[in-house]
Write a protein that binds this DNA or RNA. Structure first.
Lengths: 350, 350
DNA sequence: CATATTCCGGAGAGCGCTCTCAGACGATTC
DNA sequence: GAATCGTCTGAGAGCGCTCTCCGGAATATG
């Protein structure tokens, strides 16, 4: 028979933060010690079934939820991982689904082990930078994944020094012992440019990514080295991975050299922007100008024409980063560098 | 003179989670009590300057960071707010910058008061649903903002009952006392349709949003009521707010009634998809078919032609939701409903 | 039946912090 | 010079939980 006085189902009954039931209450109601109640709540096996049931129904009746703060105070774990984007919110969730894919990957991996994802944005150094650092080092999370870093961001190193397990997404620009997962951007870019060379394109330009990010730098490097190996002159416009910057860069490139017949864009979003500019300039793709992108985003199949591009397993990058940071948090030793494979996807634009 | 033995600057010195300095250590080193150290760390004024300085330099020297778990165990605050999206990661960060804007708004408001944003995704009821509930009720956050709800989601009510301050973004579909912020979707949609009517359009279709979300439902209602008032027959295709669904819906509408000369899309993304379909079908916009969107996303200026649309202040919706939940967490009473104004933005598509 | 072994539950010591309370000390007043 | 007041610091009691012991009951063994 149920004692109703503590029943939470009563109309209008709203627990204020203060009088949430504690483990002590549960134990009392079940007629056991706090230790036993804790055992049941944490799924220990060594509890007699009938006691177990008593505790569980007390939990149910009281609507008990363990206090995380108290728990992690003693366990020194929080069961959550921070995903830090060195980027403002607008950029993180711009027209580029790159971030979504990373987030999805990380989510998947964390959910599987019942850990919580805490997403944090941090602008170009400043107050928010400190906040993130304080948050992470303050024991709010068991580890951090940092991605979309710009320039020589000191955050990874700082967190790592403070004892927080850190994994970066993308090569670091500074010498550092912080492990990262990435693809071989340079080799992938070279492959893309070689495709253009092999199909007889003569004047190949590139729309590069931002030169304060390793992905931007390395892909440009790949372009340059492939061009150099083929004894071709480079033609570069710098974008920032966004559709808009791609469109702008393309317009500029056409002005710089109207004879160009191919362009390698360092992201699909920029490639899409470039397609728009080419259309507006009356160039046919791929007849007049061939276009190769990078990423193989979903929308790359739906551009006009469908985009030839370099596929990188973005979701897997997220997954791997998550897996690595979890391993670190568990005290395991991990590989400092993890490179995932890319693949050239031929569609109609080149 | 500094005692160097605890200096954290030493090469290769990495603190493991276990031996992080505690307030006790700081106090000891500064030669004061834990209470005083705490006062300094928390910025209490009533500490003599020279003692204050001693404590601060001890903090500095040890690299002390307060343990959040311990702190919130006693204060019953966590200084973080959950932003819960009832949606999978892929949808949240799809081609629709709606979510980004909400997130930006919430971020801005929270940063201003030095609170942390914790972003959580929750799929259509299931394990993740429980996880979010446990997390929020487990005292991980001081409040929650829930957005992009589908159907009769019980989460807001559940959290609220458990004593967590909750504010929803968008009207709730169920009878509930959980406060929300929103725009008057029905009136805004009516205004959009009236614009089309006033400019002499005869056969006006709509691409509605999903009918398990209040924004989808209410905008359709607005369309219907405006059409009804003008004694026109409705013509509806249902989308899900995405570009792709808009394109599909438009194609379908053209099949259903080739004579249509206007369409009201319940989101800019769908309107953009519709523009693409119309282009492919050889219809000129606005000459043959007028198009009105909803949201006034950034990209609405760059569509071909630029989109006439209903502006809603998405970022402000986020800000307001944040402000409301903070007020609730502070124990204040808040308005159960907060409606922000919309505005019809005339561009070239209608 | 006595002893060794196993199994389960309880007592209690903290985890690191905040905050109340009271005491110490100097300044002010009469 | 005594009494009063105000300001600052320290002592200590928890916050709610986990987890290591330890003891008692139940079972197996000699």
């Amino acid at each position: 028979m149920m004692v109703r006085q503590m029943d939470m189902g009563d109309v209008g009954m709203v627990m204020s933060g203060r009088d949430r039931p504690t483990l002590e209450n549960v134990a009392q109601r079940a007629g056991v010690s706090r230790a036993t109640a804790s055992r049941v709540v944490n799924g220990s096996t060594s509890v007699a079934p009938h006691i177990r049931d008593k505790v569980l129904s007390a939990v149910e009746a009281l609507g008990y939820v363990p206090n995380q703060a108290a728990r992690s105070l003693v366990t020194q774990r929080t069961d959550s991982i921070a995903l830090v984007a060195s980027e403002t919110a607008s950029r993180v969730f711009s027209d580029d689904p790159f971030f979504s894919s990373i987030i999805r990957g990380v989510s998947l991996e964390l959910e599987a082990v019942d850990k919580q994802l805490v997403l944090m944005m941090v602008g170009p150094s400043g107050p928010s930078h400190d906040r993130v650092e304080r948050y992470a080092t303050g024991g709010h999370v068991d580890g951090a994944i940092i991605f979309s870093m710009h320039g020589a961001d000191p955050l990874p190193e700082r967190l790592s020094r403070a004892g927080v397990p850190v994994v970066c997404n993308g090569r670091l620009l500074i010498q550092s012992s912080v492990p990262y997962v990435d693809v071989d951007n340079e080799a992938a870019a070279r492959a893309a440019v070689n495709l253009l060379l092999d199909t007889g394109r003569r004047r190949i330009a590139t729309i590069s990514g931002p030169q304060d990010m390793s992905a931007g730098i390395d892909r440009l490097k790949g372009y340059r080295s492939a061009m150099h190996d083929a004894s071709r002159r480079s033609l570069v416009a710098v974008g920032d991975f966004t559709r808009q910057s791609g469109a702008l860069a393309m317009t500029q490139l056409l002005e710089d050299d109207p004879t160009l017949d191919a362009v390698f864009a360092a992201s699909d979003a920029m490639a899409d922007g470039a397609l728009r500019s080419l259309r507006q300039a009356g160039r046919r793709v791929p007849d007049d100008v061939a276009v190769v992108g990078f990423d193989d985003m979903d929308f790359a199949r739906d551009t006009e024409p469908p985009l030839t591009t370099v596929r990188q397993p973005i979701t897997d990058l997220g997954r791997m980063a998550a897996r690595q940071v979890l391993r670190m948090a568990a005290g395991e030793q991990i590989e400092p560098v993890l490179l995932l494979p890319t693949e050239l996807v031929k569609r109609d634009s080149a």
